[in-house]
């Protein structure tokens, strides 16, 4: 199966006659709100429509409508508890692992609702990879860490050695580890471990990489390396990053979404997407005063 096929054809795309048909979960690509410049509008590789997330009875996020563009970096910013990580975790169904988590609305990947009844979560996660806040290499060798994804998803691989090398080169880690591939990954520094986690994520050839505050546990030098790497990866991959660091969002992303949480009259805080636009616009001339207050440091 070629890369192009496995990226675009999902089981839901075919009906009984084998024809490519409009799947039931198909969502029209959302074309932005009045703030979104028409010029260069995101293509909606992932589109969220009326997204609401509950943890038990608690509504963590509501009313999120947004489309992400492919092969660019989108940053999600906002104060703590505004739901940006919650939204990110919906994009590859990592929220499934949280007991009591419930998603309402649509998360469409290539127009297919990934919460649809026929969707295999493993197929979703193979296409939408994730890098976490704290580097979390497995207690295995560097090689086995990178080979883990292809192995567990049963990817047909001609040469695992080649794949591992390509992934490590892609994560700008190859030169540092090529002589110690069989050593335990815990021997690496924090920054190297995080790049290993990026290599691990790209080893399964995903289309989208989600990053949940990938630099918050790293020192400035390691952070700079990861940011350079992200710019490089964005040529091939779609990157959506949650960050607390506004300078980082401004430096690396092409588009930014600003979330905030406001308490209702009952005192329940629910996160909302306030504004989504080009990073230039958000940081230079935000349309919403809450965004401006946040990025100028007046709250949050």
């Amino acid at each position: 199966m070629t890369r192009a096929e496995h990226d675009t054809v999902t089981p839901a795309d075919k009906d009984a006659t084998g024809e490519i048909a409009q799947p039931p979960g198909h969502v029209e690509v959302w074309r932005g709100n009045e703030h979104s410049p028409v010029e260069g509008a995101p293509d909606g590789v992932i589109t969220l429509k009326d997204l609401e997330v509950y943890y038990g009875d608690f509504r963590a996020v509501t009313d999120v409508n947004v489309q992400f563009g492919s092969k660019e970096i989108t940053a999600l910013i906002g104060p703590s508890g505004c739901g940006k990580s919650t939204v990110l975790r919906c994009l590859n169904r990592m929220n499934d692992l949280v007991p009591g988590a419930r998603v309402v609305g649509t998360v469409a990947y290539h127009g297919v609702d990934i919460y649809g009844p026929d969707v295999d979560v493993i197929e979703v996660r193979r296409r939408v990879g994730m890098v976490f806040q704290k580097p979390n290499p497995f207690p295995k060798s560097i090689y086995d860490n990178v080979a883990y994804g292809p192995r567990v998803t049963g990817m047909k691989v001609d040469s695992m050695d080649e794949l591992v090398e390509r992934a490590l080169r892609g994560a700008a880690l190859w030169d540092e580890v090529k002589d110690k591939l069989k050593q335990n990954a815990f021997g690496l520094s924090g920054g190297q471990q995080q790049r290993l986690c990026i290599a691990r994520a790209i080893a399964t050839s995903p289309e989208v990489i989600l990053m949940d505050e990938p630099c918050s546990a790293l020192d400035p030098i390691a952070t700079a390396k990861i940011e350079d790497l992200m710019a490089e990866l964005a040529k091939t991959y779609t990157i959506i990053i949650v960050t607390h660091n506004m300078q980082q969002a401004a430096r690396v992303s092409q588009r930014t979404g600003f979330f905030t949480a406001e308490a209702d009259e009952m005192g329940h805080r629910t996160g909302r997407l306030v504004e989504f636009d080009t990073t230039e616009h958000i940081f230079g001339n935000p349309s919403d005063e809450r965004t401006e207050a946040y990025i100028t440091g007046r709250f949050g």
Partner: peptide, 12 residues
């Protein structure tokens, strides 16, 4: 975090 890393890579 290790389990999450594994699930995120498509492991069951």
């Amino acid at each position: 975090a290790l389990r999450q890393g594994s699930y995120a890579l498509g492991a069951n």
